[in-house]
Design a protein around this nucleic acid. Structure first.
Lengths: 232, 232
DNA sequence: TTATTAATTGTCAAAATGACAATTAATAAT
DNA sequence: ATTATTAATTGTCATTTTGACAATTAATAA
């Protein structure tokens, strides 16, 4: 029997940076850690990779278990593998960022896990290297969202242009000219204008739009350029 | 003593897809595997992650050991973690792609490892999921090189515009208009024209250029757009 | 002197960009 | 009923960038 004699073995985990958008601000979903060490401290949603699953499987499983959601937009970010990152035992963690529609989550809420949305700027300090993971995820989100239309994953089925622009502004931490943004986003052909208006945020009301899903899938790899003077 | 009771532990490895450019064609560096199973089959350069190193450290160590080169451009790609990907024992592998100046390597060549450059289109079949890794690496290289000036990492200190254009064409598997390419690459301000000419490939000779390293470092995150009608 | 070969350079119309503020649709106030 | 207020929506223009196109140049070979 062949074997890889005496090579060290490690725990392998996944951690998910879950982003959401409430219509005005970018949020992140955190949970109170359920095991020692650092039990009851805020942390990312995570778990160990089981014997019969890939890290991608594990990330999906963790998200399903903690939020009830399936088919979430999930993207592998990078591996965190400094020898001392977990004080108990060497654990390598694969970081994922997830984009979810915050409204879907609320209806699926399950109280087995103490999960809570935080404004991205008002989140508590996290355990281990999770703060670094969040910083990396924000950077990657910004990068990716500058090039591909992934931010729609955080919006409900119907959304308004001002909401969409707010989301872009939040993610990129910048202000965008309304006229130019409107022109560009319209020219992608990704949006379908609806009859109805959202009157909750203004007297005039803002027209709802929905995503052209066929176009979205076909053009996903095409590049956007919605952020002027982009320097990542 | 706290511990993560009974969670499974796995081997963790790194595998490097090493790209080079001979002035005309894109190449990949492969080695004959030195351990069972699949001993003496062609594979990527890889190794296990040791107890006191991160995966990034391990990738650098492997590259140093097998090519003699340090400070190589190395980028984490993704983790490969299907439960059955290694037939002997569960092993997760972190894939890296590396860009090296093929000429530097030749002078550093060390015969302890049977390494060989292959034209990207004429490489042998590789072990395990390494063919998939190569496919993923090519895709990522193409993507990244469309946006950032990483291809200079594969060129010698002095290079000509035709060489540079060849490299872009190889990576993107497309033809680029000489005039437009020249205009764009010049407008980045990344190139410094030298006095000397390379007369090896034509009667007229082509002027050498070198990279403006200060500008390169400063603008690395800035976006290029050298490939027209880019759809990744 | 001419032929050959590859490197280098220029023009132009169309599209995209960025900077800029007026108009519109609705409700609230007078 | 008219006016004020608020946020949504839309338009212009000069500049830059893009993509499509081929002529010229510098060297050696014939």
């Amino acid at each position: 029997m062949i074997e890889y004699s005496s090579q060290p073995h490690y725990l392998v985990a996944v951690d998910c940076i879950v982003f959401g958008f409430d219509g005005a601000h970018l949020k992140i979903l955190l949970v109170k850690r359920g095991l020692e060490p650092e039990i009851n401290k805020w942390s990312l949603m995570g778990g160990f990779v089981g014997s019969n699953e890939s890290p991608d499987d594990a990330a999906n499983r963790v998200l399903k278990k903690m939020t009830g959601l399936e088919g979430v937009y999930l993207e592998q970010m990078q591996i965190y593998g400094e020898p001392k990152r977990d004080p108990i035992e060497r654990t390598l963690s694969v970081g994922y960022f997830a984009l979810i529609d915050i409204h879907k989550y609320e209806t699926q809420l399950n109280d087995d896990y103490k999960a809570e949305w935080f404004l991205i700027g008002e989140r508590p300090k996290l355990i281990f290297d999770h703060d670094q993971m969040v910083a990396d995820a924000r950077k990657k989100l910004r990068y990716k969202a500058s090039l591909h239309p992934i931010l729609f994953e955080m919006l409900p089925k119907q959304f308004t242009l001002p909401q969409l622009q707010n989301l872009f502004e939040e993610v990129n931490d910048t202000k965008i000219d309304t006229r130019n943004f409107s022109r560009k986003i319209t020219s992608t052909g990704l949006l379908i204008k609806l009859e109805e208006k959202d009157r909750s945020s203004s007297k005039k009301g803002a027209f709802y739009f929905k995503l052209d899903k066929k176009k979205y899938k076909a053009d996903f790899q095409a590049f956007l350029n919605l952020i002027p003077n982009l320097k990542n």
